[in-house]
Simulated assay, not measured.
Amino acid sequence: MSTDRTVITLCGSLRFRDAFERLAADLTLAGHEVLVPTLLPAGAEPDAEERARLGEAHLRRIESADEVLVVDVGGYVGDSTRREVEHARSRGIRVRFLEPPTEGDLVDG
């Protein structure tokens, strides 16, 4: 077994939970290590402190990655995802988007 693998952190709105789960499985089966945001049970509503802890944990996942894949179904990129993309880029981590970029998207450039 090769020890050479790519660590990919998925970022995006958790309203696309199905896409996260599908991508995580597909990428893992392709031989990558995949890091995903914490997926809370349906209906769970974290308070402000819990949201902050979840956000910090995800930033650490981004810092551990070789690249970030933005799960931007339909081109949707919210404020939290924009911050995560900026965080990745500030650390020199490659950022890719699931959907083809359109004018105004946060694309590498």
Rank of each mutant, 00 (worst) to 15 (best):
E49N: 08
L35M: 10
D79T: 05
G92F: 09
D47M: 03
F16L: 02
E56D: 14
L98T: 07
D18W: 07
G31R: 11
R94V: 15
E33I: 06
E50T: 07
L59V: 11
L29W: 07
E50V: 06
L106R: 04
E84Q: 11
E21L: 15
L35T: 08
T3C: 12
V34R: 04
G43T: 04
E63I: 03
R15E: 09
H87Q: 09
T38V: 11
R96S: 07
A25H: 08
M1W: 10
A24I: 02
L10N: 02
H58N: 02
D79Q: 06
P100Y: 01
T28D: 13
V73K: 01
E50R: 13
R94Y: 15
E50N: 09
L27R: 14
V107W: 14
R15V: 08
V7T: 06
D4P: 03
T102K: 00
T6F: 14
L27S: 10
D47S: 03
A30R: 09
R83M: 09
R89Y: 06
A65Q: 02
D72M: 01
D105W: 04
G92S: 11
T9Q: 03
G78H: 04
E63T: 11
G12V: 02
M1G: 13
D66H: 12
E50C: 09
C11F: 13
L29R: 10
E86D: 14
H32E: 00
V68S: 02
V7C: 01
D26Q: 12
S80Y: 07
F97L: 13
P37A: 02
G109H: 14
C11W: 06
L10R: 01
A30M: 09
E45V: 14
R53A: 04
G109C: 15
D4F: 09
F16K: 02
L54W: 11
A30W: 07
E33Q: 05
D4T: 10
L39Y: 06
E45C: 12
D47Y: 03
A52S: 08
E99H: 05
D108L: 03
V34D: 04
G12A: 05
E56Y: 10
E21R: 15
H58T: 00
D108I: 03
V70M: 00
G78F: 06
S2A: 11
A57E: 12
D26S: 11
D47T: 03
V107Q: 13
I62A: 05
D66P: 05
E45H: 13
G55P: 03
T6Q: 15
S2T: 14
V73M: 03
H87S: 07
I93H: 13
D105L: 05
R91Q: 12
L27T: 10
L29H: 12
G92R: 08
E86T: 14
T9W: 01
D4I: 08
R53M: 02
I93M: 14
L106K: 02
